[in-house]
Amino acid sequence: MSTDKILFDRVSKTFPVRATRRGAAGAVTALHEVTLGVRPGEFLVVVGPSDCGKSTLLDLLGGLTEPTGGQVLVDGRPVTGPGLDRGIVFQQYALLPWRTAAGNVAFGLEAKRVPRAERADLIDHHLDLVGLRGFADRYPHELSGGMKQRVAIARSLAYDPDVLLMDEPFAALDAQTRDSLQDELVRIWARTGKTIVFITHGIDEAVHLGQRVAVLTSRPGRIKEVIDIDLGDRDAVEDVRSTDAFRHHRHRIWTLLRDEVRAAQAAEGAAGSRTAHTGGAGGRTPVVAGADARRAAPAAAHTEEARVG
């Protein structure tokens, strides 16, 4: 235990569900007794079917919600709230639209109360690190999706957290941009030595990025298996995604997920016919839940709302 940077110790999380016309109030178990350790400097990817509680896992780690059972430890100390030792990168960037790229990176530094005189160098350095030299004065609306996410990554790195938490950061980007950002993230991780916990529902992304990949079950989310990814020397091959090792890992995770996706769909179908009238509520979630919400299972809408509210 002492070797783990982050430890989920039998963590459970249930959300209250408000009563609807056809169903009484109850609770949804998003996570059930999840135990998972993350080593210092490790790049850990968490994959799972839609709405399995991946994002909840990250919220707990970020201190944005509290577990209903068990505890989350960072450096052996329980997480009691948000802190600058953990930086979160959101799928929807969460950039302040009235601030330039540099201003957004400065935001984290202001939160950390870094003296004004030291900020400029840190901002330049981190915009440089994410390949945005020369874009410091651009506002978010002047940047493409990929560039916005680079700014968000720079902002999180600038205040120098030990742990970077990434919640499907590339899910809203086109495939080409996603590929190039994945490569850059690996490069940045190698350069900075941060511990990264990366949430995704993309299997390729998981294999490409992770040193280890934790596969979650469908709801209630539990750890199904943690897989070590060994792709050999990444720099030795031109296209790591086409190697045998990559395909092997990819297939392994796909097989693990297939059963869970089926189970999730079955549960969704049942829930959908039972509480179909709440479908309207699902329409409000995409901003928060992103790709996951496209499936807009009514039951899931409750969870997301509960999480946000």
């Binding site: 944005l64 930086g87 959101f90 302040l96 935001f107 939160a111 950390k112 205040y159």
Partner: peptide, 24 residues
């Protein structure tokens, strides 16, 4: 989302108001 993001950086209520809510 902006509020969540700012909260994740540990901003207290007053600074959250000053740096996020008011400008927005």
């Amino acid at each position: 989302l902006l509020i969540r993001s700012a909260r994740s950086m540990g901003l207290n209520h007053l600074r959250l108001f000053q740096k996020v809510i008011l400008p927005a």
